[in-house]
Amino acid sequence: MKLPHHPSTTIFSFIFIFLLPSSISSQTCQRSCGKLPLKFPFGSDLGCGDPRFHQHVSCSQGNLLLTMHTGSYPVTNIDYINKVMYISDPSMSTCSCTQPSKGFGLDWDSPFSFQDDNIFALLDCSTSSSPIFQSSTLYTDKNNNSKVSLCDNQGTSICSFLYSCRAISTINLPISTCCVYTPVDLGPAFEMDLQKLHCSSYSGFYSFNERQSDPNSWKYGIALKYKFSVNNEYPSSCANCEMSNGICGYFSGGAYNSFLCNCPNGINTTNDCYFGANYNYGSRLSSWQIGTWLFYCLACLLISVW
């Protein structure tokens, strides 16, 4: 016997199909990349961390890499308290290795700038054609409000220590071709272009490691400051997410910078992971999903009564 068809049944069926909660699936953001812990604003993959940083910092086969227009550089450490990232440049000369390099530069739109502790020493520069040795040569800083000399006359001792390294001394480079680069905060509008400066290589370090006269002990690499935003304030939504054991991320397929909290079970929410113990086949439901299911149950009850 065929039951009579009621228009209300069609309406409620449509509502059910339209509002049926789909699973909010998401890949699980990792808390580390190799041996380095990952915290906001850095993330392991697309949708993790801050989208402004994802295009420059990525995790590849257990290695965290910083990518700029001048190349890709391994990240050696991250100081989350002081907001400083430390990288190494494979083309950089150190006390144990001297090799040619094109230099290093930051993308103009990157959220990074140079830490003041950086010291750059340009090596094997042409004393006749390199502009750094011209006393009249000045450069304009990134804010176009001051000019300073490119070469630090007080850096002679640093050059002396570097040129005492076996890797440099064996190729008989004269110390007169070394120059300590004064403007450590090159900024996103300026970069160290060794070809334009007529230098074949450079050495960079961010600490003497309390042994200034021993270049073998210096901490070679580049220290970069990073900022969350203009005010450099830690996002409160991210702090709440992390307190609930979540990982801060963003919705890569939607509006730019739309915040998401990635929870341990792989579910994304728009706030935090404190949304009850309701499960759907092992996955927690968000508040809007619970409301939708309640609406559906009410609709079913009305249909049965009808």
Rank of each mutant, 00 (worst) to 15 (best):
M68K: 02
S72N: 11
M85G: 09
M85N: 02
Y73G: 04
Y80N: 12
S88E: 08
Y73C: 03
S88A: 07
M85Q: 10
D79F: 10
P74G: 03
S91K: 10
N63L: 14
P74Q: 08
I87W: 04
S72P: 01
N77R: 13
G71F: 01
N77F: 07
V75E: 01
V75T: 14
M68Q: 13
Y86C: 13
S88M: 08
L65S: 05
V84S: 05
S91Y: 12
K83D: 13
T76Y: 06
G71I: 07
G62K: 03
D79N: 13
V84H: 09
I81V: 15
T76E: 12
Y80H: 06
Q61S: 02
G71S: 06
V84K: 09
G62A: 01
N82G: 06
N77V: 04
D79E: 07
M85L: 15
T70Y: 14
S88C: 01
G71Q: 05
G62V: 01
S88H: 06
P74C: 08
Y73F: 09
M68S: 04
N77P: 04
L65I: 09
N77D: 15
D79G: 11
I78D: 14
P90I: 07
V75I: 15
D89T: 09
L66D: 03
L65E: 02
T76F: 02
N63A: 14
Y86W: 03
I78M: 10
L65G: 00
T76H: 05
K83I: 11
L65C: 05
Y73T: 05
T76K: 13
Y86L: 12
T70N: 13
G71C: 05
G62I: 01
G71V: 02
T67Q: 14
Q61E: 12
Y86K: 11
D89S: 06
I87C: 08
P74E: 12
I78L: 12
D79R: 05
G62Y: 02
P74W: 03
I87L: 11
N82V: 07
N82Q: 12
Y80Q: 10
N77K: 15
H69T: 04
K83G: 09
I81E: 15
T76L: 11
G62D: 07
L64D: 00
Y80D: 11
P74V: 07
T67A: 15
V84E: 13
Q61F: 09
Q61R: 09
N82E: 14
D89E: 03
P90C: 15
G62R: 00
L66S: 00
Q61V: 04
D89L: 11
P74S: 05
S88I: 06
L66Q: 00
T76D: 04
L64E: 00
L65Q: 08
S72V: 11
L64A: 06
M68C: 01
L65V: 01
I81S: 14
I78G: 12
Y86A: 10
